[in-house]
Amino acid sequence: MDEERTSYQVNHLAQLESEAIFILRETAAQFERPALLFSGGKDSIVMAHLARKAFFPARLPFPLLHVDTGHNFQETLDYRDQYVADLRAELVVAYVQDSIDQGRVQEEKGPFASRNALQTVTLLDAIEANKYDACLGGGRRDEEKARAKERFFSHRDDFGQWDPKNQRPELWNLFNGRKHHGEHFRVFPLSNWTEMDVWQYIKAEKIPLPSLYFSHQRDVVHRSGAMLAISDVVTAQPGERVETNAVVRFRTIGDMTCTGAVYSEAADMDTIIYEVATARQTERGTRADDKRSETAMEDRKKEGYF
């Protein structure tokens, strides 16, 4: 008996995968119009992969929604289009530029301007316009302290806001997606994953990634403790240290104005996993958007950020 029991042991990745697939199916079952937020970053890639597994051999029962700041790395966009084609999924793109043109948001001025904060308005507008009632996100609780309190099914009021003190308790496998008209949910199937789990899963499942995650050479500027890629939207200011052909890679991928690179020669999965295991800085330590204040993430989440 004992021997037979042992054969039913399930390793951590299989447990996390099973949990995430359960959440994805629960979202499809409990909501009328879900969408999967897809940024082309590794977490959303893993999410799309899990969704493909959850509904196989059918196609995804919901579209992928990309909020495009207009400041994306070209590699991310190329990857996105290829991946969506492979999945035969529906892609919906919401443009921050449209929100700016419509006067919904004011673009930040100056050399340090970022469209990161503007995304929230574009996202909430897209949710309203498409009548999405649940948005699946790749957020993980290990990423940031405000996210450690996040639920799998995260309730948002009719302003799209998160109220950390008034969250629904979540027990066992039971998720309450009931809501009033106009309210919606954010759903986080990867809640219990760590950065390491994500990398290990990508390796175990042989999921292709955008080239940005692997070591390459690029010109960077050092700004507020982060190392940003020089591009049309990030130019070096007087007094800032510029480095040409730095050997770098990205641990997270977001908007070019706020995603910092790290020095790295890791060019394959095993080296990246080793690097993650030995890293001395948190993953979001490279994100300039979290550095604006100690509670930056908490404040943005309350407003309705991802």
């Binding site: 390793n11 996390l16 290990q200 080793y274 295991a277 030995t278 001395r280």
Partner: peptide, 17 residues
């Protein structure tokens, strides 16, 4: 994290508590 986690296939099969 500066842990001495072994990077091999075995690490893909860990127990979760």
């Amino acid at each position: 994290m500066h842990t001495d986690i072994p990077i091999d296939e075995g690490y893909l099969h860990m127990d979760l508590l």
